[in-house]
Structure formats: C-alpha cells, structure tokens
C-alpha cells in the first residue's frame, strides 16, 4: 500500500471531525472519498497532506511514518495536493505559479523553467502561461493548482473537490486531465461531490459520514450499500443510478 492510515483522529476542541479512520490507498489507483457536507473529508485530507497534525493515529506513506511531519516534508517525499478553495499565487503569472512547484526538484531556474513548460503544455495552460493567475476563472484556477502540484513530481496527488463549481464541459476536460495524470503513473486520491465523477474515475470509494467511514468498496458496491443510501445519498442516489443504468444500457 502506498498510503496506510490507521486510527486517524482529528479533534477541534471538543469536536471530533475525523474519528479513528483507517484507509488504504493502493499504488497506481484512483481512490475516491465521498460524503455529505461536513463529513470530515477535507479535514482528513489535511491530515494526510500534513497541513494538520492528527490528534491521534498513524499515517504511513511508502512505508514511512509521516503523521506530524511538516507539509513541506510531505511535498519532498512525493505528496502533492490541491485545495477545495484554490490558493493560487494571484500576483504571479500562471507560468510562475507552476515554476514554484518545479523548483522543488530543479534548483536551477533554467531547469525549473523547462520542467514547468512541460507541465503547462500537458495541462493545457501553455497558452495562458504569461497571464496573471488572477485573470483565470474557477476552472482555470483549479487546473492551475493541479499543474502546480504536478510540477513537484509527486507519487500521489490529493485532489480536494478539484471539479466543484465547473460547468459540464469543464468537468469533462478535467476528468480527461485526471485520467491522463493517472496514466502517467501517479496515484490519485480524490474528494468529490459529483457522483458521476467518482463513479467514472475511482477504482475504490470510501464513504465518510460524521467523521467516520461507513462504507468502502468499488463504486458499484458502495452505491448499493443501504447504509450509504440511507446516511448520505438518499433518494437522489437512486435516481442517479437509474440514470447511469439508462445511459450505459
């Protein structure tokens, strides 16, 4: 397993946002995390990426204990992330944003520039490289966050709602990008609200509810789990499954 989380718990004061979560992420897979608003997905993500030091539990990454290490050491070890609310460097150009990521593995400016250019090309941002990051819309910023993370040459990419707030066409483009990144050998963990996205991308899905995992399995297994249907998705999921069945059948 590339990532093994055991008993990961995150408390804010008396409130337990993530409660004893065990999660395995297999190398080379796309692992999906779903759950209703406030289920604890982002908090768990922040524990994985080192933004938070978990109150309890262990996280092993490529066999090494990383719980409590700084975010910068997570990045150096090969973990990259995007944020639910983009944190792009708005005063810098799109290309320079990606350069910042590329400097992690390339000390010299010319080398970093070359690596960043390749990432810009691959993520379809080459045309906007000289524009300021603040000129991008939501879809562009989310894409830029992915590009910047990719430039750190990670083993695993953690995407927190990278597709939220996008139009249908933008979602299709983003799915293509995620698939392409995955094909290049990068393991992906993705949080997503949009069911279609998770169903079409993820190999395995984990469902969060009130800070705990209530179901785990293939997308098919999870969506058929009565606990999930009851706790989170209710009837809307039934409708989505019917639609999906009609579409594929």
């Amino acid at each position: 397993m590339l990532i093994e989380a055991r008993g990961v718990t995150m408390r804010f004061g008396g409130f337990t946002a993530v409660d004893a979560v065990d999660l395995d992420v297999a190398e080379g897979r796309i692992t999906g995390l779903i759950g209703p608003n406030g289920a604890g997905k982002s908090t768990f993500f922040n524990c994985l990426a080192g933004d938070y030091r978990p109150s309890a539990g262990s996280i092993r990454f490529a066999g090494r204990e990383i719980a409590g290490l700084t975010p910068e050491s997570h990045a150096r070890l090969g973990m990259a992330r995007t944020y639910q609310v983009p944190h792009t460097f708005t005063d810098m150009s799109v290309g320079d944003n990606v350069m910042v990521g590329a400097f992690l593995r390339h000390r010299r400016t010319a080398d970093a520039r070359r690596a960043a250019d390749a990432v810009l090309e691959r993520t379809g941002l080459a045309g906007q490289a000289r524009h300021r990051a603040s000129s991008l819309g939501t879809a562009g910023r989310k894409r830029l966050e992915i590009a910047r993370a990719l430039a750190t040459e990670p083993k695993v990419l953690l995407l927190d709602e990278a597709l939220a707030g996008l139009t249908a066409t933008e979602i299709q483009a983003a799915i293509t990008l995620v698939r392409d990144i995955h094909r290049s050998g990068i393991t992906i963990v993705i949080v997503e609200h949009i069911m279609e996205v998770i169903l079409s991308l993820a190999d395995r899905v984990t469902v969060f509810h009130h800070g705990r995992i209530i179901s785990q399995g293939t997308p098919g297994e999870v969506t058929g789990d009565p606990k999930v249907v009851e706790a989170y998705l209710g009837r809307s999921l039934e409708r989505q499954r019917q639609r999906a069945a009609e579409a594929s059948g």
Binding site: D51, H87, F89, D96
Partner: peptide
Amino acid sequence: FYLRAIKGSERAARSLGI
C-alpha cells in the same frame, strides 16, 4: 520565486515543499 509564493499564500507555499 519562493519569496513571492510565500507572499501569495504561506499554506500553498508549504504544500509545494517550500
């Protein structure tokens, strides 16, 4: 680049290994 990134967002800067 690193200083400008820090000015932009310390949190994002750290997540990129700075």
